[in-house]
Simulated scan of single mutants.
Amino acid sequence: MSDVKEVDVLIIGAGPAGSMAAREASRNGARTLIIDKKSEIGTPKRCGEGIMDGVLESVGITADERWIARHIDGARLVAPDGTSAWFTSETLETPATGIILERKVFDKHVTMDAIRSGAEVMIKTEATGITREGDYLLVDIRSFNNEYSQIKARIVIGADGPEGRVSSWMGINTKVPLAEMESGAQYEMTNLKMEKSDTIEFYFGSVAPGGYAWIFPKGYDTANVGIDVSGVKGDKTALEYLDDFVKNNPETCDGQIVEVNVGGNPLCGVFDTLIADNFMLVGDAAGCVSPITGGGIDTGLESGMIAGRVAARAIRENDVSVDNLREYADYVDEHIGKKFRKLITVRDFIYNLDDDDMNEYLGAIARANITKLSTRSLLKAMIKVSPRKLLKLRKLL
């Protein structure tokens, strides 16, 4: 086993947030290394793979048809009684368009962008602990080729996802209360009979207690079909709720499963502490996950981009203290955390509705003349049903 490998910036986790951090750190002059414990970047996928148009452009990624599974035109919201609110180019003045990614290809693309910018990558390499040595962090690793036993870095960026351990090694509390942790399960399915195979679908109510079910098309008869359920509501597992949903939904009941994914999803918003001396958290590991949808690709990319730039600047200035990294934490709080705190209020209201109330509110949304799909426009339609009951949400408009 050779000597310790030394770098400026070490990123633990090669998901979109980690690879984006690596791209920006290396572009800005830092010697950067990404490690990932998996043998293949991008697997297993842990999300519905959907993002809105404009997200990639905002972080300097040019869309490539090789990793776009489906172009999406709007959304469908479905109440427990089957009432549907459609938001497509036929109903909206401002289109709500997006894409469904093929994460197995997309994640590799972002990592390859980092490599082309100068970063190194070590796959099938697991971080097992961190110790401090002066103004450096020493990360113990276990690698398939046993080339190194430790990596010495001025800055470590934790990008190891919602169930990561790196934050705890640095004394940062990222434990999520059970009430704010969703259990998720998803099938990639084919032979589906979707009413519109270019529209994402969300199903609410007792079909998914404290959460929602979804159908995200990846082709004319293929889609990600999944569910998120509250950790403290319901009496079945996420997989059991998903099986019931698949069996009872006319679009999915004849489908066949080709892939299974399960895992936890934190809906608590951005964690209170994201930085320490020599250290930053990004993406899901930082809580950059929407408290309503559980989506985090967009905010993961954004947080990684800023973290990489701040890390490179700190290296140039030879100051990797927590005070000099605060620019990153302040950015995340202002651009992601503040928005998520408002969404938590909406989440707590929506996911506590019973089926009758959900039918009433989604019925109002379906009848409203909504020409721009946004949280604000949906809230305005709901408030007309019961202004007094939704008094708290009026403050968000």
Rank of each mutant, 00 (worst) to 15 (best):
D284G: 03
N224M: 09
I123T: 11
E182A: 15
G118T: 08
G60R: 12
N191I: 09
S374M: 05
A185C: 08
G54I: 15
A179D: 14
I336K: 02
F245P: 00
E317Y: 02
E251F: 01
L77I: 14
M189G: 04
D107S: 06
L178D: 10
F204N: 02
V110H: 10
D356H: 12
E163F: 06
R66S: 10
I141R: 00
G255Y: 00
S197H: 02
R70I: 08
D64V: 12
A69N: 02
K45N: 10
D81C: 11
A21V: 04
V4K: 02
Y148I: 01
R103A: 02
G296A: 08
T131Y: 06
G48A: 15
E259F: 08
K338V: 13
P177L: 14
L56Y: 04
D160L: 10
A208S: 15
F144N: 10
T371N: 03
R46Q: 02
A366V: 11
V59T: 11
I257P: 01
W86C: 12
R132C: 04
I51T: 03
P217I: 05
E6K: 11
I297N: 07
V258L: 13
A75E: 06
H109L: 07
R46V: 03
G118V: 13
K389C: 10
L343K: 11
R132Y: 04
L92H: 13
G98E: 01
L396E: 14
N28S: 11
A119N: 13
E120F: 06
